[in-house]
């Protein structure tokens, strides 16, 4: 049986109160149950819009208040550079993350107005690298040039490239997979015909993570594509959940 661990999901109301299928954690979990997704990583819209402090707190409070959520939800931490003193030290951030069972990190350098360079974020990224904490690099927000630059500057970073774009990203993602051994990508927009099997044949299944892009996208779409990709059952298991489970065992 294939168990699915979603590597790309967000929820929560934004400041303009746009309608969303996932206003609260309850709807996230109901949708997971509806389609048969066991676990998900998760970030909250308010981490982007209100910032690292309150956004993360809102999500953690909701997880703690929801029966069964801790076992199925892996919250993403949100960070900004520590040199301003507004956040705690890198070691303390790591301690708080692990205490909250947060396995991954979300960053919004454009919106939170900081730069992805070692002088700004190097101290934090060093701690993440030492402790194998993956950082999301969303292509739709950062752009591919910034992703390439980030990986050149932090070649050992555990990175999850997300939201790769519906026009197949292979010409952009394959060089990154070849060059950086700790780089992964998720499948929410990896829709091209036969692309999963093609990439598995080229680089193996170990760096591909099932991601849905929920709530924008339906979780079941890429589940069926993975289930019936022309690859081995073991490769399917790795992509559906095995790779992300391994990645989160810091």
């Amino acid at each position: 049986m294939l168990e699915f661990f979603d590597a790309n999901c967000t929820y929560g109301r934004n400041k303009t109160n746009e309608p969303t299928p996932f206003p609260t954690l309850k709807e996230v979990i109901e949708d997971m149950d509806r389609v048969g997704v066991a676990k998900t990583t998760l970030w909250h819209a308010q981490q982007l819009e209100s910032g690292w402090e309150i956004g993360t707190k809102i999500m953690l409070d909701e997880i703690n208040a929801t029966p069964g959520a801790k076992e199925r939800i892996s919250p993403s931490w949100c960070v900004v550079p520590t040199l301003t003193g507004e956040q705690e030290s890198p070691d303390k951030i790591l301690e708080n993350m692990l205490k909250a069972n947060a396995g991954t990190v979300r960053i919004f350098p454009e919106e939170h107005r900081w730069e992805l360079y070692p002088v700004a974020i190097g101290d934090l990224f060093d701690v993440f690298i030492q402790n194998h904490i993956p950082v999301y690099l969303p292509a739709n927000r950062l752009g591919w040039d910034r992703i390439y630059r980030t990986m050149m500057l932090f070649p050992d970073l555990y990175a999850i490239v997300s939201n790769c774009g519906l026009w197949g990203p292979d010409r952009r993602i394959r060089p990154l997979l070849k060059a950086y051994k700790n780089l992964y990508f998720e499948t929410s927009e990896y829709w091209a015909a036969g692309s999963i099997a093609d990439t598995v044949n080229a680089v193996g299944p170990e760096r591909i993570l099932y991601g849905s892009g929920a709530p924008r996208y339906e979780r079941g779409a890429m589940m069926l594509a993975i289930k019936h990709a022309d690859i081995s059952d073991d490769a399917k298991k790795l992509i559906a959940s095995g790779n992300l489970e391994r990645l989160l065992k810091h």
Binding site: A192, A193, I196, Y217, E218, A221, M223, A225
Partner: peptide, 19 residues
Amino acid sequence: GTDMPWFDEHQGIGGLLSA
């Protein structure tokens, strides 16, 4: 429709069945 080879048949069918 899928725009094949732009998009995979099973991605499209999976999306349809999820609705």
